[in-house]
Design a protein around this nucleic acid. Structure first.
Length: 954
DNA sequence: TACATCACG
DNA sequence: GACGTACGTGATGTAC
């Protein structure tokens, strides 16, 4: 694909997306623990529910702390399994399930579903067998697997990619822990169990041999068969006799304890994809069971949980309501209020080791990188900071140079301070940063992951990752900014040292490489410390705010997807841009001269102020309006109006402005952004800027490349595909209007979308009372304006000014619209009152969007907020849909064996670079993913085109 | 640095 | 009776 023609150090890395992670919960373990740990409880109707309560509580707790890309709770389906055919005594003395537990099994499956988690079970197989099958398959495909169980029988599955998590101790069980328990490596566990047997499961084993002896024998003879073959030579007579006499029993035992990776599975792995919880279903379930305390604890018992005051901190949810008062897991004051610094500057492996050990011990760490630029694709790594607990953080400088200013011309050049080499630091840190059992917490992870993933920085693929910026954004979009300093002040009551304080500003700013190590450490280590503390403060809020699924399944997965897109960039034909620029320059010279001749004097055509004075003071043209600064308004609408009245000057200025805009922004600035290494431009997608859930794009902004005018389209045609490739553009058709038809459930609009009709023509027919074949261009144009205006909360005044018609006429059109489309007016009113009462509105997928100013006393400000509230669910819902498509796209393409790269997202459009031979297949995969990503009352439709450049693809 | 303007969805 | 009037972004040039 196109990568072959570009610089390998940028693009050589294969597409890697958010790390697949499967969590398998051993349901039976949870159930029996809950049942025996809790006193009897019944619902009002007498159904026993203590196990249901305990299970629900434990699963809820678990989900506040863990999430994977895939997840399932695995249950035992029946008492009788294939093992009873091998050995009829297997688990024979297990008592029947207590009668009070029996009716709870079904409710527990219901609870699982209410959390949006898959249940898995299969007749004739134990949960352990299914766990083995899924774990093996998932790990074999390169995924990470966590099995939540304390069942030692599962320890045989531990290997790279598969670990156990003890649900009681919350402790990972890996090879070291298995060895501690069985005295052998995980792959030999079944041989040890075959010899030692298991009285609780009635696995016979060899009498007289326990785990210790078994481990010793297996380590000596390799495996069970090796041992049985050599049994004759064993010195101890008793042991020898026992082994010879019970060889067959040992073989049967091995079969009983062996978990077969080839066990049939009842559902494909895809069915285990972590799903968003269904809004209301969990609350409904909890209410049905009468679990009021859980409703409350999960924040499902009323309206929005108000944000905490700026300096107070959210608390962890107590682990169990039954635990004695005061024994909850709230942050202790000591840990909570640890000082921010002093921090350690680490310049040796010896000094780094305790931090690495502490990170592994804690299972989570804060991470931050310092660089010498903001552009992640060019920046050099200057240092790394780690945090392992509140106040426990360090900075590892790597590329700090000598301090400026203290060099003496007569002496030798000043030396750089002693530091670890990057190679040494990477060698020590890479295993930790890639360790699936240690959570790495970053703020704006995309940036650091881009820096650390570059080959010259060790190609570190940090995983797993949490991002405090995205955690905050998932809950609080529109409410405030999500920069670290702001969140620290808001949630930790602490103002971190600012970057400007460390490097200076303006001309005096020095690169981070020139910052003295003590200052650099105070700043950098604090950022890692703050990040980790923010994680502790914010992550537990996700579930009670119903934002966990959004974060885990959408926002967090977008990090890797966007990283790949930014890395890929898009090729721009610089020579073509230069030709366009020449053409525009020549025409601007002519227009400028003509404008000045018409004005009667020279003036700066680019100055709205001078233009206003000429038009309204000197030429005395009518219709001038002053802006808030007292200057005449001269924007395009004003100039168009003047031009339509026959004045020549405004047209010249309009034409000049268009060319000036295109030339400065899209010819000159864009050309300067082309990376000489690959002749591509690499944008930076901001994930937590907008108030609606949209992305934004900057440096350069590739979401506002011209298209509407012919001059603009020339620019777009300078975005090209590599040789042998095309650009493929896929647009969601009318996505916001589809959301309107869905949300307000408008019959006529729904029908038009079902039938694939032109929606604006349908609206024209409906509101102007025209037969479908009588709808002309003008009627359609007006209907289109109304359709979009509705989504923006437009008033009759606004419609009148857009259409150039009297306000009364506009009023009549809007009235016709609302009466012909019942439900829309109600929906608009509902959104306004929801915003007023709760402070936020919701997208159809459950993202809360906070509306700033909705309570304002000033009518103007409040009006703005009300229109924002009306628009937010549509804009935000559309953003949600395309993000879901984006996180599914890389896997879908890979599974289809396609090498297309996703390059850009422009709100309702995805742009791909596709090998010529894969155009058709890619189109189908893209269409399938985009159209199936949400189930609305109307179909989703993607329109797809392709060509050698972006203009043609569209 | 604030404002006006205009490129996009 | 006055007020303001279609949502969301980012980049540029002018003027202060």
């Amino acid at each position: 694909m196109s990568g072959s023609a570009v610089s390998p150090d940028i693009l050589a890395e294969p597409a890697k997306e958010a790390e697949p992670h499967l969590i398998l919960v051993d349901g039976s373990g949870y159930i029996f623990r809950a049942f025996h740990a809790l006193p009897p409880m019944t619902r009002p109707d007498g159904v026993p529910v203590n196990a249901v309560f305990g299970f629900t509580n434990m699963l809820g707790q678990f989900l506040t702390k863990h999430a994977g890309t895939h997840m399932a709770v695995v249950f035992d389906a029946s008492r009788s399994t294939f093992r009873n055919q091998i050995y009829d005594q297997y688990k024979a003395h297990r008592p029947e399930a207590p009668p009070e537990l029996v009716p709870q099994f079904a409710l527990i499956r219901e609870a699982t579903a209410a959390f949006g988690v898959a249940s898995v079970e299969l007749d004739q197989y134990e949960a352990d067998d299914l766990i083995a099958a899924y774990a093996c398959a998932f790990a074999a495909n390169g995924g990470q697997v966590t099995i939540v169980s304390s069942d030692k029988d599962l320890m045989q599955l531990v290997r790279p990619g598969i670990q156990l998590l003890d649900p009681i101790k919350q402790k990972p069980i890996r090879e070291a822990e298995v060895f501690e328990k069985f005295g052998v490596t995980p792959d030999k566990v079944i041989d040890v169990q075959a010899l030692a047997g298991d009285s609780t499961d009635n696995v016979p084993g060899v009498p007289g041999i326990g785990i210790k002896t078994a481990a010793q024998l297996i380590n000596e003879y390799g495996d069970l068969e090796g041992l049985l073959t050599a049994a004759e030579q064993i010195k101890q007579p008793k042991r020898r006799e026992a082994l010879i006499a019970n060889a067959e029993l040992a073989r049967i035992s091995k079969k009983l304890v062996t978990l077969d990776c080839d066990t049939p599975v009842p559902q494909p792995i895809d069915a285990l994809l972590a799903r968003p919880p269904e809004p209301g279903r969990l609350a409904g379930f909890l209410r049905e069971q009468g679990f009021r305390s859980l409703l409350h604890r999960m924040g499902l018992d009323g309206d929005a949980t108000p944000d905490t005051a700026p300096t107070s901190r959210p608390r962890f949810v107590p682990q169990l309501p039954e635990s004695a008062p005061g024994t909850t897991t709230e942050i202790t004051p000591a840990a909570d209020e640890a000082a921010f610094g002093p921090y350690e500057t680490v310049v040796s492996a010896e000094a780094l080791a305790p931090f690495i050990a502490a990170a592994r011990e804690a299972g989570a760490m804060g991470l931050d990188t310092e660089t010498d630029a903001l552009d992640a694709l060019r920046a050099n790594l200057v240092g790394i900071s780690l945090a392992v607990g509140p106040g426990r953080a360090c900075y590892i400088p790597l590329r700090h140079g000598p301090l400026p200013g203290n060099g003496d011309m007569l002496q030798e050049a000043p030396a750089a301070p002693p530091q670890m080499s990057q190679d040494e630091a990477v060698a020590l840190l890479k295993p930790l940063l890639e360790d699936p059992s240690v959570m790495k917490v970053l703020h704006n992870a995309k940036y650091d992951l881009e820096v650390l993933g570059r080959p010259e920085h060790g190609g570190i693929l940090v995983s797993p990752v949490d991002d405090t910026m995205l955690i905050s954004y998932s809950m609080d979009a529109g409410r405030h900014g999500h920069g670290m300093d702001e969140l620290s002040l808001r949630h930790l009551g602490h103002k971190p040292i600012s970057f400007d304080e460390v490097t200076g500003t303006g001309r005096a700013r020095i690169p981070f490489t020139q910052v003295a190590l003590d200052k650099a450490t105070a700043y950098a280590a604090e950022d890692a410390d703050v990040t980790l503390r923010l994680w502790h403060a914010l992550k537990p809020r996700l579930r009670p705010n119903q934002a966990l699924a959004l974060y885990e399944q959408v926002e967090r997965r977008m990090v890797g997807v966007l990283r790949e897109m930014e890395l890929a960039g898009i090729k721009v034909d610089g020579a073509e841009l230069a030709r366009i620029g020449e053409d525009f320059s020549g025409r601007m010279v002519v227009l400028e001269k003509e404008a000045q001749d018409l004005a009667g004097r020279p003036f700066n055509v680019g100055s709205p102020k001078q233009l206003g004075e000429i038009l309204f003071d000197e030429m005395k043209l009518p219709g001038g309006k002053r802006g808030k600064a007292g200057a005449w308004g001269t924007d395009a609408a004003v100039l168009e109006d003047l031009a339509s009245r026959g004045h020549e000057l405004p047209r010249k200025v309009l034409d000049w402005r268009q060319l000036a805009k295109l030339k400065s922004t899209y010819v000159e600035a864009l050309s300067a952004q082309i990376d000489p290494r690959d002749r591509r431009v690499h944008t930076d997608f901001a994930m937590a800027i907008t108030s609606t859930g949209r992305l934004s794009s900057s440096e350069p902004n590739l979401q506002n490349i011209p298209i509407r005018s012919e001059e603009g389209a020339r620019i777009r045609r300078a975005f090209i595909a590599e040789p042998g490739h095309v650009l493929l553009a896929a647009d969601y058709s009318q996505i916001e209007l589809r959301l309107l038809a869905h949300l307000a459930d408008v019959p006529s609009l729904r029908e038009a979308f079902e039938k694939g009709e032109d929606i604006h023509s349908r609206t024209a027919s409906d509101i102007f009372g025209l037969a479908p074949d009588k709808v002309d261009k003008e009627a359609r144009r007006r209907a289109k304006t109304v359709n979009f205006g509705i989504i923006y909360g437009m008033s009759s005044f606004g419609l009148a000014s857009r259409l150039g018609i009297p306000a009364a006429e506009a009023r009549a059109i809007i009235d016709a619209y609302f009466s012909r489309y019942p439900g829309i007016l109600e929906e608009m009113e509902r959104l306004k009152s929801e915003a007023r009462e709760k402070g936020y509105v919701m997208t159809p997928f459950g993202r809360k969007l906070w509306i700033d100013g909705i309570q304002a006393k000033e009518q103007a400000r409040r009006g703005n907020a009300e229109r924002a509230a009306i628009n937010a669910p549509f804009q935000g819902g559309a953003a949600e849909i395309i993000k879901r498509a984006m996180v599914r796209m890389p896997l879908a393409l890979r599974e289809a064996g396609l090498s297309a790269r996703m390059l850009l997202q422009v709100h309702d459009e995805l742009l791909f670079e596709v090998p010529d031979s894969e155009i058709e297949a890619t189109s189908e995969v893209v269409r399938q993913v985009m159209e199936s990503v949400a189930e609305l009352r109307v179909p989703l439709k993607a329109e797809i085109g392709h060509g050698p450049n972006w203009g043609v693809a569209h």
